[in-house]
Design a protein around this nucleic acid. Sequence first.
RNA 1: GGGGUCGUAGUUCAGCUGGUUAGAACGCCGGCCUGUCACGCCGGAGGUCGCGAGUUCGAGCCUCGUCGGCCCCGCCA
Length: 596
Amino acid sequence: MAKTAETNQSSKRTTYCGDLREDHAGQEVVLTGWVQRVRDIGNLVFVDLRDRTGLVQLVARNEQPELLEQAKKLRSEFIIKVRGTVKKREAGASNPSMPTGEVEVELSEIKILNLAKIPPFVITDPPQAAEELRFKYRYLDLRRPAMQRNIFLRHQAALLTRNFLSQKDFIEIETPFLTKSTPEGARDYLVPSRIHKGKFYALPQSPQLFKQMLMIAGFDRYFQIVRCFRDEDLRADRQPEFTQIDIEMSFIEREDLFDLTEELMVEFFSLAGEKVSRPFPKLGYEEAMNRYGTDKPDLRDPIAIEDLTQLASQSGSELLSGIIQNGGAVKGLLVKGGGSLPRSRLDKLQEEAKILGAGGLIWIKKTENGLKSSLKLEPEKMRTIWERLNAEDQDLELLVASPGEVASRVLGEFRKNFILEKIKAGKLPDMNLAFCWVTDFPLFEWSEEDQKIVSVHHPFTSPHPSDLDLMEQDPFKVKALAYDLVINGYEVGGGSIRIHQPETQAKVFKVLGLTPEQAEEKFGFFLEALTYGAPPHGGIALGFDRLVMLLCGEESIREVIPFPKTTSALCLLTGSPSAVDENQLAELGLKIKKQI
RNA sequence: GGGGUCGUAGUUCAGCUGGUUAGAACGCCGGCCUGUCACGCCGGAGGUCGCGAGUUCGAGCCUCGUCGGCCCCGCCA
C-alpha cells in the first residue's frame, strides 16, 4: 500500500472528469475530485466522481478485492485521486442523460486525499436547501453544477467585456476604494481613519468623479469592471457591494454610447446563445411614464397604457366627467385573455388600485349579454372605449381615473404583474430579452423627504443644450442628456453626457441650492479640475451582476455572486458585520455610545 | 422605517378545532446484492418544534416580544 501511495504522489491528474468521451477509451487516466455518490452493489461498486467539469462514473470490481474494499469505504464529498482505464460502456449500460455516459473508468488505484464530514445538504441541482443554509455553507453550495456554471459564465462575461472594450481602444484604470464621502445620493459605507482620528474615508458608490478626471487627464477612453458600495436596503437585484462595468469617453455624443453599449450587449448575450437585435428602441422618459407607468418598462409585452380621457369625458358618467374637469385623466390597459378572471380577482385588483393611490378601478369585459362594466357607462360609449384598445371577446379592460401620473403608475404596476404572470405560465412569445433605452430624463426633481430640489441622476449630468435657458425660471422643465438601459423591466445601466464647463456646473449647483462655499467644500477639487481644460465627455455604468443574472436566466443576483449578503446585509458565512475589539476602536479614536 | 411570508429530525416538508408516545420522504449508520446511475431490499439511529415570556389543567398549534431567511414599499444622486 505504501508503495502505491508513492506512485500516486508522483502522478498528476491527466484529465478533467467531465471531459471524458468515447475517444478516450483505452487510455489510462488519473482523475481527482469529489465523490458525488457511491452505489455499492456488493461485488461491484460504482462511484460518481465530480470536478468542475462534471461527473464521470468509476467502477471497482471484486477481481481486485482490496480496491473493492477501498471503494466501499468512500463517502460523499471525500476528495480522491484515482487511476484507471477509460472503457466504453457495454450496450444497455450507458447513461444518455450524462455527457460522460458512454464511458466509465475501470479503477486500478484509489487514494483518499481528504475526508469530508456528512454535508448539511446534498450537493445537487436544483438545490435541496433553503437559501439561509446555502449561504452559511456557501463553499458547498458553490460546488453545485448550476453555481459553477453561473460563476464560470460570470468570468466569461468579464473577459469578453475586457476584450471587447480593449479592442475599442478603452483602457482599464483602477480608481480608489478609500475615497471622499459624497453626501448626495445613497448612504456611504464609511471607513474610519486611524492616522486622522475622527475623519473618515467613504467606499465609492461609483467612481464617477475619478473617471471624469481621467477624461480631463486625457485618457480618452476608460473602463473598469469595478466594485461599488451603497449602504441602502437590499432586494433580489440589489446587494450592498456590487460590480459595474464603468465606461467613460471623451469627444462623443450620446449616440456613440448607444452604439458602443448595444454592440457590447449583442456580444455579451451571445455567451448564452441569445440573439439580440439592434438598434434598441428608445423611449423618452415622459413617454415611458405615460405609456408604461415606470421609467424601466418591461417590453416583453408590447401592450401599453392608453389615454382615454377624451373618450371618457363623453361617457355619460358624472364620476369620470368630474375627475376630468378637475384636471384628472382616464387611462386604460388591455389585459389579453383577462375576461375569464374571476370576480374575486377583479375585486382584489380594485383594492390594490386603491392601495396604489387610485380612487378606484373600472373594469370592462364581454359577457353573453354584451359589454359589462363595473361603472355605469352609456353602452355606446362603452363600446367605443372597448374598441379603442382593440379588445377581443376574451379580454378585459382596466380603467383608472385619477391625476394622470397616478393612473399610469397604477396601471403600470398591473401591467408589470400581468406580464410576470404570463411569463410564469409560459404564455409570452419567444422573446427572452427586451431591451430599450429610456432617454431625456428631467435634470431635477423635488424631494419630498428633504424638501428641496435634487438631481435625478447626479449633479454632473449635462442639461439638454436647448433647455439651458430654463435653468433659472423653470428648472423642472430642464431635460438631461441622461439615459438608462433597460432589459425586461430591470434597469441594467445608466449614463449621461457630463458637464464639462465650469459655468454650467456652477449653474446646476445654484439650482440645487448649494452656495459657492458649499460646492467648494464638497466638490472643490473637481470644480477646479474642470477649469484646466476638460474635454466634452460622457459615459455609462452597466450593472454587471444584473446583466450576468439575465445571462444565466436567474431571478436574483445572489445566484451569480459567489459570496452574497442576505437582505439584512449580513454575511452568514463569516458572520460580518461583527463587533470589534476595544483596542481597535481606541486606535481609531472611536467609542460605541450605546450597546444595542 | 413599514407591510407580507416562513422558521418542526442532518435536509425538504406534513402536523386538523389546543389534548395520549410529534410523522413522511430524502440523507445518515449497519446488513444483503455483479451493471447501477434518484440502484434495490432488510434493519436502525436521529427532535431545545428558532429563542424568551404569557394565556391554559394542557401549547408545535393561541397572544406578546425577539432573532433570522425570503418578497415588496419607502430608500437606491
